[in-house]
Amino acid sequence: MNTAASTRCASKTSLRWERARESARRCIREGAATVFAEEGFERATMRRIATVCGVTKVTLYAHYRDKERLYRSVMDGHLASMPSGALDMHGVADLGDALMRITDGIGRLAADGSCQAFCRALSHSGPASDGYREHWNAMLAPYFRLAEDAFTKASSRPTHAADSEKYLRLLLTEHGLPQGDRPVSGPDATVALFLRAYAAPLPGAREF
């Protein structure tokens, strides 16, 4: 076999090996994602992950040196696959319309499989997930800003910030999503929130 043919053969062999390696790593990440979502980072073990993936621990460690690296690979993959937090607020008619668009955006986020797995793993993990909690807070930040802006434009009342925060927390709770680290407002904002968003004021009624 001449040099050129040898080079082509070696290149094809290398390509097949890389494809097989990436396929194995993808299967490992998928199995690990299931374990991390069910048990969190601290409780998950490499033995359990290897069992779910159908590989030996030796094979698992050959691809991922430790649990921390595997966890980061899984969580980074979830983040990369999630839908964007950007919302089209062009032509918003009123507060109800704005809240509906924000609701739809949160709904799409909650329905995404990567988001679901990411949030389950986050909820079941402890301090090891602090960096990813910051990622989640950053992902929620545009929704909080949009809600606050919508309430601010709808009314000059000083309670708009608490109302917008409460609205987002109600949405996140409904979908079972982590609520981020923003300060929690009091429960008195809830009634005012829905009255202001959807109900016409009664004649002579006292404003909340």
Rank of each mutant, 00 (worst) to 15 (best):
A4H: 05
T7H: 11
C9H: 08
A10H: 03
S11M: 13
S14N: 08
L15Q: 15
R21I: 01
S23E: 14
S23R: 15
R26Y: 04
R26T: 14
E30K: 02
A32T: 12
A32F: 04
A33C: 08
T34H: 10
E38F: 09
F41V: 12
I49V: 15
A50F: 14
A50G: 04
T51D: 11
V55L: 00
V58Y: 12
A62E: 15
H63A: 13
E68H: 10
S73D: 15
L79W: 13
P83G: 09
A86D: 12
L87C: 01
M89K: 04
A93E: 14
D104H: 15
G105L: 10
L109D: 05
A110F: 13
D112I: 02
G113V: 05
A117W: 02
A117I: 03
F118M: 06
C119T: 06
R120Q: 14
R120K: 14
L122I: 10
H124C: 13
H124E: 15
S125Y: 06
Y132T: 05
E134I: 14
M139A: 07
A141Q: 15
A141M: 10
F144S: 04
L146Y: 11
T152I: 03
P158Y: 07
T159Y: 11
H160I: 03
A161V: 14
A162N: 11
D163I: 02
S164Y: 04
E165F: 09
Y167G: 03
Y167P: 00
L170D: 10
V184D: 02
S185I: 00
V191H: 12
A192H: 11
F194A: 01
R196F: 04
P203K: 00
A205S: 15
E207V: 13
